[in-house]
Design a protein around this nucleic acid. Structure first.
Length: 352
DNA sequence: AACTAGGCT
DNA sequence: GTATAAGCCTAGTTG
């Protein structure tokens, strides 16, 4: 690929991301070259199609179990560093949804005769966990009032009325809300937006001024991990950071600092969903519902439910997920879950 | 086997 | 001065 683009076609390499052996040709990088040659758009398009074909369209039918006529994923309960499940052979936690064409793959997942899929996902669970752990007053207040969280934080940062928040301001706040949970810096924010580095730095500074709890959480977590060499979720799940444990700043410690910031958030969200799965399993059996948990996708459960029980089961699942608090300790903010249902995994309709 | 890319939360 | 957002799995290439 490098040979074709940069030797044969002699496309400009200025400002391109590098890999160990040459220039990156990932989509983000190719976008920079879009106007240099018509082949760029064709490559981007081909990549999407070949990804969908090789990973999903060709692979999934091969994995149908002849005995059951279904695909059976394997869930690894111990494979992730934060407490999440992972899924393999096939991975059913990364079935496409983002693009219209990719989403078509979900049509292949069809509920059995007489049953429908019920999907229930937590709304903004990681940000709610952040609100709880950081005890940030603004975040807590926004979730208590069930506000549009990205609109609310945009309003807070800009010091304006939520009703006056523009689409761009909301999108930007959304990126910052998520990014900060991963330890994003101004450099990345500027690179992924229209802002200069100085403007991005200013935005984050204002964000932290208006949401001091979040800044404090990041600072305190860094201090904690340097002192103890681990971080943990609300419910005591731990992750160690070997490079930090050595006690010397190195190339890896910056990366581990970000992981240490993220783990309690992502891991607590994982703990909560796991507890809700346990509670739900018990309750579905107690009430003799004809419903089965089929997939877990980090903040979402997909069930197969007997058609005429869909509304009762939906109410039970939503209630169970919204009240799933390990140790019975309530969060400082409510948990919220949204439901949808359908005959196949693509055509899902919102409920209530 | 390592690297690169890209699918998901 | 340098690098720069977390966690996964799979496919295709040999960067």
């Amino acid at each position: 690929m490098n040979v074709v683009l940069f030797d044969t076609l002699k496309l400009p390499v200025e400002g391109l991301n590098k890999t160990t052996h040459g220039y990156s040709t990932n989509t983000v990088t190719l976008e920079i070259l879009k106007n240099e040659h018509p082949i760029i758009d064709m490559i981007i398009n081909y990549r999407e199609l070949s990804k969908l074909k090789s990973t999903y369209v060709d692979a999934l039918p091969e994995l149908v179990n002849p005995a059951t006529g279904r695909v059976h994923t394997s869930y690894n309960q111990t494979g992730s560093a934060t407490g999440r499940f992972s899924s393999s052979n096939p991975n059913l936690q990364n079935i496409p949804i983002r693009t219209e064409l990719g989403r078509e793959v979900r049509r292949a997942f069809v509920a059995p005769d007489g049953y429908v899929f019920l999907a229930v996902d937590y709304s903004q669970i990681e940000l709610r966990v952040m609100a709880h752990i950081s005890q940030d007053a603004t975040l807590i207040d926004a979730f208590k009032r069930d506000l549009d969280i990205h609109q609310a934080t945009a309003a807070t940062v800009h010091g304006i009325d939520p009703a006056d928040v523009t689409y761009e301001q909301r999108s930007f706040a959304k990126r910052v809300n998520f990014g900060l949970m991963y330890g994003m810096g101004a450099f990345r924010l500027a690179r992924d937006s229209d802002l200069t580095l100085a403007e991005a730095e200013g935005f984050i500074k204002t964000y932290f001024e208006r949401m001091p709890g979040v800044e404090q959480y990041i600072k305190q977590t860094k201090a904690f991990v340097w002192e103890h060499g681990y971080t943990e979720t609300l419910y005591g799940r731990r992750r160690d950071y070997p490079a930090i444990k050595v006690g010397q700043k190195s190339r890896s410690t910056a990366s581990e600092e970000r992981a240490a910031i993220n783990m309690p958030i992502q891991g607590t969200a994982a703990d909560i969903l796991k507890q809700s799965m346990l509670n739900l399993y018990t309750r579905l059996n107690q009430e003799s519902f004809d419903a089965a948990m089929t997939l877990q996708v980090h903040d979402e459960l997909l069930l197969e439910v007997k058609e005429d029980q869909i509304h009762d089961v939906k109410a039970l699942v939503v209630e169970t997920m919204e009240s799933a608090l390990p140790d019975g300790k309530p969060l400082l903010v409510p948990l919220k879950a949204n439901a949808s249902y359908g005959k196949n995994w693509r055509d899902m309709e919102d409920m209530d």
